[in-house]
Amino acid sequence: MLCWSLLVGLSFPVVGWLSDSLPPLLLTSLRFVIASLALSLLVRRASDWRPHARAMGLYALMGLCLAGFFGAMFWAAHHATAVSMSTLFVSVPLLAFLMGCLAGVERIAWRLPLVLALGALGALGLAWAEARQSDGAGWRFGIGEGVFFLGCLSSALYPVLSKWGLRRGWLSASAAVRTFWSLAVGAVLIGLVGLGIEPVTALTEMTLSDALLLIYLGVGSSALTFWLQQRATAVLTPGAVTAYSYLVPFVSMILLFIRAPERIDWIWAPGAILVLGAVMLLIHGGSDAPR
C-alpha cells in the first residue's frame, strides 16, 4: 500500500498533462479498458478466472462503486471547491471501517479508529496548508459536495465488498482476477454514463501524447494500483486499506516542493507529521494475517 499511495500521488500530475478538451468520463472508461486488457494476460493463468453468477453480481456492485466514485468526482469538480472535496475524502477510511464493521469484515477494536482519526487530522492539516498557500475557496457544503460525498461512500464500499466476497469464497483468490472484473465492469458503467452526457466526437481531439499518457495511466496507474489494493485487501481490513489514502496528499506535497521549493513552509509540518505517524502505526499492526 506504500507503493499504491506513491503511484496514486504521482498519477495526479500526469492526469493534468492531458488535453482539457477531452471528455473525462469517456477517458476514464478507456483508461479502465486499457487496464483490463493489461491484466487479461495474468487473468488467463488463474483456474477460476471465469466467475460464477454470484461472483459476477458482486463484481457488478464493485464496478458500480468505481463508476460511482469517478462519476461523482468529475461532476463535483465543477460544482465544489477543491478544499471541500479533499476534506470530504478524508472520511473514506472511517466510512470503510464502519461499513466493514456492519458487514462483519472489520476487527472491532480501539486501535484502528485511533489511527484513522490521527491520519484524518494530518490529511486535514495538509489540505488546510494547501488552502492557506493557494488562497483558494474555503470549506462549504452544497450540491457538489453532497454528490462527492456519495462518491466517497462508493469508494469506501469497494474494499468492503472485496473483503466480504473473499471471506465467503465467492471471489477469486487471484488479485489479478478480482481487479480485472471490477475494472471491466466499471469501464462499461462509466462508459455508458459518459455516452449519455459527453460528446463522443471530443475523443477525436486526442493527440499522440494524450494516447501515450492514457496508456501509462491505464497500465501503470489503474491496473497496478487496483491490483495492489486487491492484494492488500486479502491481508488487511477495509479500514486499514483505505487509511493509506492519507499518504496521497503527502506525496502531492513532496511533488509540490520539488516543483516549487519556495512554497516550503512550517504550516505543512503538523499535517505531515500526523500522517506519517498514522502510517507507521498501520505498518506496525494493521494486518489480519500472521507475519
Rank of each mutant, 00 (worst) to 15 (best):
G119H: 02
L274K: 00
H78T: 14
V193Q: 01
Y158T: 08
W170R: 14
D20V: 07
R54I: 09
I190F: 04
M1H: 01
S21T: 15
L276Q: 03
D20A: 12
L213H: 04
I190K: 02
A55H: 07
R259P: 11
A232Q: 08
A109N: 13
G186A: 13
V188E: 07
S155K: 07
G220H: 08
V14R: 02
A67E: 04
L98I: 15
G122A: 05
R31N: 07
R50E: 11
L2E: 02
R111N: 13
D265P: 02
A109Y: 10
G125E: 05
T179Q: 15
L183I: 01
L18P: 05
R263I: 08
G68D: 11
L208M: 10
M280C: 13
L6S: 03
A55M: 11
S134F: 12
T204P: 00
A60G: 10
A223P: 00
A175P: 03
R140N: 07
A211Y: 05
F70C: 07
A243P: 04
K163T: 09
A232I: 10
A60L: 15
L247Q: 02
G146M: 07
R107Y: 10
L281P: 03
A109L: 10
I267G: 00
P51N: 14
V177R: 00
L124W: 06
I283H: 07
G286I: 01
L157D: 05
L95N: 03
H52F: 12
L10R: 03
S47H: 13
A202L: 05
S36A: 15
E262D: 15
S134G: 11
D210I: 07
A278W: 03
M99Y: 03
L42K: 03
P24L: 03
V235C: 04
G169M: 13
S172E: 13
A202F: 01
P159V: 06
T179R: 15
A234F: 14
C152N: 09
S252C: 06
V177L: 15
A123P: 00
L195C: 00
F149S: 02
T237F: 12
I215H: 00
G186I: 04
I283E: 10
L112I: 10
W170N: 12
A46K: 06
S172Q: 09
L166W: 04
L37Q: 05
L25H: 00
A55P: 08
I108G: 11
R31W: 04
L213W: 05
F32S: 01
R31F: 09
S5C: 13
V14N: 02
P261D: 08
A72Y: 06
L171I: 09
H78C: 02
Q229N: 15
M62K: 03
L236W: 04
L224A: 10
